[in-house]
Design a protein around this nucleic acid. Structure first.
Lengths: 350, 350
DNA sequence: TCTAGCACTCAACACTTTAGAGTGCTAACA
DNA sequence: TGTTAGCACTCTAAAGTGTTGAGTGCTAGA
């Protein structure tokens, strides 16, 4: 038997162990695997191989007389080298698009639906990290006086994102003044990234010779105020009940409490974590994460990016116990991300 | 000993049992109560009284040789007749106002903060049922064309509530047309309740002689669309981790899963439930609720209304296990509700 | 009307036993 | 050299047993 043959067999056995464990939550013994292999190998041989896999750090035994359980490293190896990702058929993707296609036009509504649909579909806690206007460029900004000392500032980005913020203003502003200011903003600032608006206006203000000095100053105050409350990105989170009902957590209420505390109080941390590992490469799998978020050390999350006009815009993903059906769920998350990209780009062109 | 004396004593003992049980989660025995009463009665006498309380349905025994535990009826009686509500001092209310007073001006932000602050303060899951523009009257409506086929419809109510909805329009609309339509709406419809806008416009449309026929028709389409996606009221929910960590639930993962499923999928039902029992009378306590929401049968919730311009606007409350410190929590919820009323009315007058 | 005393009940805990699942090792076999 | 049967060994989970102690209800007497 060649070296690669033996390696292949080992991988196959690791795969079977992981799949059996994921399905049953029970440590997997040599006999079960032998049975599944239809007598091509005896339990004793399987045991030898399992011993090797344990030495290499892919498996471990909860106790002497128990079967084997995958380690983080085992899962990781499985995800990266062993499992096959089934891609969704185009019919499945179309069905999915029907599911999330909202009648309304607001991006927020779409992301919310995507998140709920993903949770419902995978029976796992699902999340969406969504972009906000702050990541795009100005298409249009409208100022609507509301009452005497308030101004509703509507920010429209070139990728259909919309945000509106109420801003307090010291001196009252008439509708005409608001329109003049709006005209100024919409001729001078269109096309700039929202993230650079403030610094750009500040620069113009320093060069005091600007003939629009007063307009620049006033827009700066308002936009600074409006943009300060606009987050960089938004997190949608749904289906937490699925997380609670996982057998590995239902015996550890302490763990569940920690996780929920984390969702409530550490959203920034959580976002940073998801964002940090997300890049253009596509689907990502994170198995456990002791360093960044100890409360989620017993969880895995997997997420895939979606794009607007070819640019990375955000990601969709799920969060579950380490013991999850990676092959199936990867396909689903990946499919959903593609689907979101499709829908967003249909919007773009409409 | 007169009848009322004996009744008073019985109530005192019920009170002590409930308070001891709330504090420890353990069934309460006669000896403990006797000790707390500083030897004014012997355990045997207490036992007799406890026996009576059990016959009357206020207490029950988990098993023969256990202490007593309050029944729903026991809690109810305690809340209605026995416990004393301490009201918050004005300093405490002021402190509270400092805590929730947001720097931003949006009502949504306020309610969100109130909800989080209440959860943090009480260490219970907290909720706010908040009004939307649909419950108020039109102060101002602005139409902002966004792109070619979209219109942002900003609804400003006379009580500072603001909502904006993106509406798809068939025929493109210029900025001038939008302004004309806006002028029409803001002269003709101001002061009407948002809930009656559509029917009012429909009536005018039937009387075809209206000289503004075209404007009426166009506003109807737009407002119908904008208002259809505006909910009647919004539910804010925070601090669910506190619910998870209650000892009575941490042993019943099934229950926790049901509760979370309910929060995720039955928000309407939940809202209806909270709204139904909320009225002008003030603080309300619901102990268990088997009929309406079986998933929350093990929970109590208590909530107090807040007002805008003297009108019932919504409520704030908490949700926890039946075994909760009603006296303390009632005072807190009541205080928070008053505080919200104060803040909202300060806004109103500013 | 209250209380001391007593018999009774039952959950909780510690302890023991047993069954069985699974292992590692060894010697024999292909 | 890789595979396998056999066997001793380990350890958990479940079931059974005995003991303890908290708490009760009842009764008779103050």
């Amino acid at each position: 038997m060649s070296v690669t043959d033996s390696e292949q067999r080992k991988n196959r056995i690791l795969e079977m162990i992981i799949e059996a464990y994921v399905a049953t939550t029970n440590p997997v013994g040599s006999e079960l695997i032998a049975k599944r292999l239809r007598c091509s190998l005896s339990p004793a041989t399987i045991r030898n191989i399992m011993g090797e896999l344990e030495e290499e750090g892919f498996l471990r035994q909860p106790h002497t007389s128990a079967g084997r359980v995958p380690t983080d490293r085992g899962y990781r190896f499985y995800v990266e080298s062993v499992m096959g990702i089934r891609h969704l058929s185009s019919e499945e993707v179309q069905q999915l698009e029907g599911l999330i296609q909202p009648e309304e036009l607001e991006a927020e509504e779409l992301f919310d639906r995507v998140c709920m649909a993903l949770a419902e579909w995978t029976h796992q806690a699902a999340f969406v990290v969504a972009p906000t206007v702050k990541q795009s460029k100005v298409r249009q900004i409208e100022l609507v006086p509301v009452g005497v000392h308030k101004l509703l500032c509507v920010l429209v980005a070139n990728d259909e994102m919309i945000a509106s913020h109420l801003v307090e203003i010291q001196e009252p502003m008439t509708r005409e003044e608001a329109m003049a200011l709006g005209r100024f903003i919409n001729t001078e600032l269109v096309g700039l990234p929202f993230s650079e608006l403030v610094s750009c206006l500040e620069r113009r203000l320093l060069a005091e010779t600007d003939s629009f000095y007063y307009l620049v100053k006033r827009s700066l105050t308002i936009l600074q105020n409006a943009l300060s409350t606009e987050p960089q990105e938004r997190l949608f989170l749904e289906g937490l009940s699925y997380l609670v009902s996982q057998p590995e957590f239902s015996q550890k209420p302490q763990k569940v409490h920690e996780m929920f505390k984390c969702f409530e109080d550490q959203q920034d941390e959580l976002l940073r974590c998801l964002h940090h590992t997300s890049d253009h490469k596509g689907l990502q799998v994170q198995i456990g994460n002791d360093r960044a978020l100890p409360s989620l050390s017993e969880c895995s999350y997997l997420h895939a990016p979606f794009f607007i006009a070819g640019e990375l815009a955000g990601c969709v993903g799920i969060l579950g116990p380490k013991r999850m059906d990676y092959a199936r769920l990867c396909a689903m998350v990946d499919g959903m991300a593609r689907c979101v990209t499709d829908v967003l780009n249909q919007w773009e062109h409409s």
